[in-house]
Design a protein around this nucleic acid. Sequence first.
DNA 1: CCCTCTTTGTCCTGAGAGTGGAAAAAGTAG
DNA 2: CTACTTTTTCCACTCTCAGGACAAAGAGGG
Lengths: 396, 396
Amino acid sequence: MRRMTARPANAHQARLLRLLRDGGPNSRAQLGDQVDLSRSKLAVEVDRLLETELVVADGLAASRGGRRSHNIRLNPHLRLLGVDIGATSVDVAVTNAELEILGHINQPMDVREGPVAVFEQVLSMAAKLRATGLAEGFDGAGIGVPGPVRFPEGIPVAPPIMPGWDGFPVREALSQELGCPVMVDNDVNLMALGEQHAGVARTVADFLCVKIGTGIGCGIVVGGEVYRGTTGSAGDIGHIQAVPDGRPCACGNRGCLEAHFSGAALARDATEAAEQQRSPELAARLETNGTLSAVDVAAAAAAGDATALDLIREGGNRTGQVIAGLVSFFNPGLVVIGGGVTGLGHTLLAAIRTQVYRGSLPLATGNLPIVLGELGPAAGVIGAARLISDHLFSPA
Amino acid sequence: MRRMTARPANAHQARLLRLLRDGGPNSRAQLGDQVDLSRSKLAVEVDRLLETELVVADGLAASRGGRRSHNIRLNPHLRLLGVDIGATSVDVAVTNAELEILGHINQPMDVREGPVAVFEQVLSMAAKLRATGLAEGFDGAGIGVPGPVRFPEGIPVAPPIMPGWDGFPVREALSQELGCPVMVDNDVNLMALGEQHAGVARTVADFLCVKIGTGIGCGIVVGGEVYRGTTGSAGDIGHIQAVPDGRPCACGNRGCLEAHFSGAALARDATEAAEQQRSPELAARLETNGTLSAVDVAAAAAAGDATALDLIREGGNRTGQVIAGLVSFFNPGLVVIGGGVTGLGHTLLAAIRTQVYRGSLPLATGNLPIVLGELGPAAGVIGAARLISDHLFSPA
DNA sequence: CCCTCTTTGTCCTGAGAGTGGAAAAAGTAG
DNA sequence: CTACTTTTTCCACTCTCAGGACAAAGAGGG
């Protein structure tokens, strides 16, 4: 099916599109309250947007005491694809232009199988979503990958946990396959965008979004914009030294945060504890499943298992110490904790908070909320949709 | 004397003023090459600037093969005051609008004497500079203070080393006294601005500027703009934990970087080494001066004193470890080391480099220069002048 | 010295952006 | 039904700005 390829012609139109995306349907008058344009100018730009079919009329607006106004909304037929590629699973979701999730699937998968195999799976998941009638095609797609990305070109660079992807032209390739614009970014940055759009970070200009999954990364938002660093590796905090002369890490150093606390490290510690009979809960779970993951630790902790709680606390302390340093340096207005280990919940959060509030100066921590992300696995795909919509809703 | 109070009327004029500030005298045609305006529009804006007397005609430009063009330059009578208040001394300088230093004085002073006493001294130093005929008055002043500042209002907030300054309306007060616009910022941020304008960081968008003086701080530049954080305390890295269970720090924690390496810590360590007779060089200097500072350690190291070298190396290692973490997190394009201890020179730099290149991933360090600042004590005052000129050269 | 070519500065016109007032349209409240 | 609001539409007017035509001023060659 032919898709809308129109783009806003100027900054005003881009502004209006983003307002409609973030605020839903709005009357012309309501839009006028937000944009500082004369009524005439606003009417002209809205008419032009209507012509492009990016926005459509949508019934009457609520009365504000006078003449009823007609609502304007983003074309409800627009469809965005959000793809969040993790180390061990993929999330694919379809959203409308207002970034509401219409359909969402998750499947296990190993990134190390390489880009070709992974994209085959992503495309088949996208096809499955399309087959349910949610979409006839996509107007844009955002892709998150678990490693650094050269953002303008959408190409992974030297990603440690996905070696086969180095230099693979993800953006180019997927744009070909899907026949629509594509943007690629680090999964952590997309989580930050997601939480900014629809989660806990809606009103904060400068914040950090720490994602603890298979690895550990940190999305950095400065003045409402994701900061990616000089080579796209900003936020790569997994290899900051957390323990002097600590455990050896895959990167070649010792004591990296990721070696001491992450989904992978936690699973290994839990298995070791189970095998050494230090934890009956974990041992039982290892017995039945054959393997342990962060989920098992969370369950054991919920059941009151002391060893599991200790593992979480210790990991939280390590992470908290590193975050304390980042808070001193970056002075954010909010810290969001997300990723697979959020299942560990408040035990983890309490440990992190303790370390940060103790290890940073009051001026930086005085009014600093440290909270769990509120979108869970949806954060990545919403962020991905947000990424591409930011691209589509900017002047051509 | 009456000063120029004109401000650019629009963004184009602001742009032109900054080009003239950064590039010196230019012909209309050369300006046209840089600004993407039609010749007519450019001519109009230049004429308006000439009317305001912010810029003046300045002879003929070099021929480029055709009709000779007249040069335009910033009014050479404009004068900016740059003030850099350190923990133990003040720098005051006068610059022209192109931020060239015309006169510069440094005097010892203790910030803890409080804002009133310090400003008395600053004003008398400014008067002294004025008396030499360099300036008849000032068109703007930039002030750097050694602590966090609520930037929009120009008010120090909870500064650890200058307790009497908390909440003092520095901007307001000095603006009254000097009768010109004033902007206030953290001294470290100004050093970063200085190195960006006239030093090693001219071409880099994202960089860190680590200042090791009495304390330790870090200026953060993102996309060419100083990042100040939510409460103005961004870059406060002196109290990041560098040594687990290390020395007690004035902030109440243990192992802060600043407690282990800074001008103050170094002086204490050196004194201790001298008293314990571990270093004949330092002991001799303590004997003659009665007290030791970073300068003495530098001299002893230059003379080959092993203890002094060890002190520098160990401090550099600590600092380097912290910077390695920041590099992983921030992925800068450049790291500048400045402040009082730059006298320690390449011994220090080598230690820092070793730690950073070892402790961060190759993607972040691959093309990362770590260099000493090239402006020395002038960085602060140039940065201060730059700060106020950015303010003056922005649309009213 | 004359001629041609290039660069720079100035003038002018037309397209388009944008403003704000007037009036019409469509509602609410009493 | 009347008075008052709010919203939309229409229109005339101002301003900005680009780009072409042309003039001014220089370089360089013969």
